[in-house]
Design a protein around this nucleic acid. Structure first.
Lengths: 334, 334
DNA sequence: CGATCGTGAGTAACCGGTTTCTAGCAGGCA
DNA sequence: TGCCTGCTAGAAACCGGTTACTCACGATCG
C-alpha cells in the first residue's frame, strides 16, 4: 500500500527533482542566506511535490545535537514527579525540544545505566531525586553534562540544582499549628532512608528543641496511605492535638483512619500534609499542607538546561520554599 | 575540565588504537559471527581503554531504526494517561526501547504536527485518545505507521486499537445498583464532545429504555471535581437514590458536595464513579467504580507495536471490559 | 578596459556508524 | 603439487543530512 510516496523522500531526490545540488536544498530548507529566489522557489516546489521533510536523525548526526532532552525519575506513579514531567515537557516543548523519559522504578542500580543510555540519545538530562550515592553521581557528571538536578545537591560540582526547602516548609506548618494553640505534635515519619524525611524530621527537632514551645512525638510510619491509616489509633493514644504527616498520602490515610475511629478533624485533632498533590484540595476536610512548587521545578530545570545548551554555564543551587496552604484540616485547639 | 576523555571516543579511534578496520570494530561491538578471538580481544581492550560506546544516533541513521517509540497524549495531568504512560514506558523499556512523550494539551490542531514530528524521530507511535477528526486520522496512517490507537477506533484501517468498553462498565454499575434496590438514578454527564461520555450515556439510555427497571435522569455536569461538587444540590432535589458520575473526579466532587449538605453516603444516596483513578480507594467512603485497566492498555499497546516493528502486521480491535469495584459509596436503598 | 571584489552554487569532506563486496590466506582434496 | 573452497578482515559504499572550500560569474573600481 501507499507504494508511491512510501520510503520517504531524501534530500538527494529533492535535489535531483529540482536540478540542483544537495547543498542548495539544505540551504533552502534551513532558510540559509544566499540562494537566488528563483532557485529557492524551484527547490521548495520540488520538496512540496515529494512531500519532503529533512530526517531528524540525519540532522542530529550532522549537527551533533538532537533537540531532545531526557528526564530520569525514580517513580512515575508519584504525583510530584508527574507534575515535574508535565511542566518540563511543556517548557522544553515551547523551545522546540522533545522529552525522553525513563523510570528507574526506585532501582538504584539501574539508575546509572539508564541515565547514561538516555543521555547518549539527547543533548541534556534532568535527574529527579536520584538515589545514586554521591560519589557515583559525582563521577558521572562529565558523562551526563549538561545536566540539572532536582531535589538533590552535589556540592563542589558545577551542576545546577533545584531543591525544595523542606525545613522552611515544616517551619511554616509548625508556626501555623502553634498559632492555633497546639503544644503537642505527632510526626508521622516517612521512610528513614528518604532524604526528604530526614530533612523534615531534623527541622522539627530543631524547632522543638530551640523554641521549647511544643512537645514533639515521633511515630515510625511510612510514605503511603495505608501507613497513615494504620497509625490513626496510635496517634490518638499519644494525646497530641496535631499531626504533621510525612506527606499528603500519609495525611490522607490518617484522615481516613481518624474518621473511622469517629474522631473529628479538625475539631478534636488537626492534620497537616506535605507536597500539595492534586487531590489534597479534595479530601474531607481539605488538607492543610505545604505546597511544593513542582511546576516551577520543571520549568526552571528547562531554563537551566537551555542555558547550558547555549554554552552559558549556569551553575546555581536554588531552594524553593514551599507555600503554606491553610485548608480545613487544621483548627484551633480546644 | 575532563579534557582527556572528553568528546567521546568514536569507532575510528578505537579501530586505530586496536590496529584494525572500522568494520572489524563494528563486528566485534555487535557480537558478529566472524572475528578471530585474538583480534576481538584486542578490539574490546581498546574499546575499554577509550571508554567507547557506539553512538546511538549514528546507529539509528545506519540501521534505519532508533529503538524509540513515542506516546502522544491530550493531557498529562489526567491520571488515566499517567498510568498508560507508566505501563507503556515499562513494557517498552523491558524490550530495550525508549519512550518519547508529547502532550497536545487538548489542542486538536497541534496534535497532527506533534505526532508527525515525534514519529520521525522514532520507530512507532501510540496515540492515546486522539481528538483528531476521523478523516484526518485516516489520512495520517501511512505517515505514522507503525502505530497503535488507545481509546479510539479507526474502522477500515489496519491500525490496532485498544479501547475501553464503556457500555459494559456502565452495565455492571447499573446492575450493581439495581441489585441494591435503586430505581431512580441520576447521571452526572461529562463533556458532551467526549466520546467516552457519549458511550456511557448511550449505554445508560439503552439499559433504562429496554429493561424499564429504573428511571434515568440526566444532569449536565462536566469532567472535574468542581462540576460534581456544584451538582450536589441539584442531585438531591431530583429525589434519586443513586448517582452515576461521568468519572471518578466528578464522583469525588459529588461526595464532597453531598457531605457539605449533610447527606450521608451511602445511607441516603449511593454514588459511583468511573476509571478507578489511584485515589478512588481513599475517599470517604471509598468509591464504588468501574476500573479501567490502564496498565493493560499500556502493556498491550507495546505488544502490538512490537509485533509491527518485527514485521508481523498486527491488526486488531480489542475492547477491555472495566472491572466493577464495589466499595463503600454504594449501599442498599432504604 | 582590465584587475578586484562579492556573491551564488556546486564539490567534497564530514558526522559515526553498518554492511556488501572483495581479496588474501590456509586447508583440503585430487 | 596445483586448484578449489571457506573463512577472515579490509576497502568502500551507504544511511541523510551539513558545511568548509572552491570556482565561475557579473559588477565595481581605478
Amino acid at each position: 500500500m501507499s507504494g508511491r510516496t512510501r520510503s520517504t523522500a531524501t534530500i538527494s531526490r529533492v535535489a535531483e527533482a529540482a536540478g540542483v545540488s544537495r547543498a542548495t536544498v539544505s540551504r533552502v530548507m534551513n532558510g540559509r542566506s544566499t540562494v537566488a529566489p528563483e532557485l529557492a522557489a524551484r527547490v521548495l516546489a520540488a520538496a512540496e511535490a515529494l512531500d519532503y521533510a529533512p530526517s531528524p536523525v540525519a540532522r542530529s548526526l550532522a549537527l551533533g545535537r538532537t533537540a531532545t532532552i531526557a528526564l530520569i525519575v525514580p517513580d512515575l506513579s508519584n504525583p510530584m514527579f508527574q507534575d515535574v514531567l508535565r511542566s518540563l515537557s511543556l517548557a522544553a516543548g515551547e523551545d522546540g525540544h522533545r522529552l525522553l523519559i525513563a523510570e528507574s522504578n526506585e532501582h538504584v542500580e539501574d539508575e546509572e545505566i539508564l541515565a547514561i543510555e538516555a543521555r547518549r540519545r539527547c543533548d541534556g538530562i534532568v535527574l529527579a531525586s536520584p538515589r545514586l550515592p554521591t560519589e557515583d553521581l559525582r563521577r558521572l557528571v562529565p558523562q551526563l553534562a549538561p545536566m540539572v538536578l532536582i531535589n538533590r545537591k552535589l556540592p563542589g560540582s558545577d551542576v545546577p540544582s533545584l531543591s525544595v526547602d523542606h525545613g522552611a516548609g515544616i517551619s511554616d506548618l509548625v508556626s501555623h499549628l502553634l498559632s492555633l494553640g497546639h503544644r503537642k505534635i505527632v510526626y508521622l515519619a516517612g521512610p528513614p532512608v528518604a532524604m526528604s524525611n530526614v530533612e523534615r524530621l531534623t527541622a522539627l527537632r530543631r524547632l522543638s528543641d530551640n523554641g521549647r514551645q511544643f512537645e514533639l512525638i515521633q511515630l515510625a510510619c511510612g510514605a503511603m496511605f495505608d501507613n497513615g491509616h494504620a497509625a490513626a489509633g496510635e496517634v490518638m493514644s499519644t494525646g497530641a492535638t496535631a499531626v504533621v504527616a510525612y506527606n499528603d498520602m500519609v495525611a490522607f490515610g490518617a484522615l481516613s483512619g481518624l474518621h473511622e475511629l469517629g474522631v473529628s478533624v479538625p475539631d478534636q485533632i488537626s492534620v497537616t500534609g506535605f507536597d500539595d498533590i492534586p487531590f489534597a484540595r479534595f479530601t474531607t476536610p481539605p488538607l492543610t499542607t505545604a505546597a511544593v512548587p513542582t511546576g516551577t521545578l520543571g520549568r526552571q530545570a528547562w531554563e537551566h538546561l537551555r542555558e547550558q545548551l547555549q554554552g552559558h554555564s549556569s551553575t546555581q543551587e536554588t531552594d524553593f520554599r514551599p507555600r503554606l496552604l491553610v485548608r480545613g484540616s487544621t483548627g484551633r485547639t480546644t
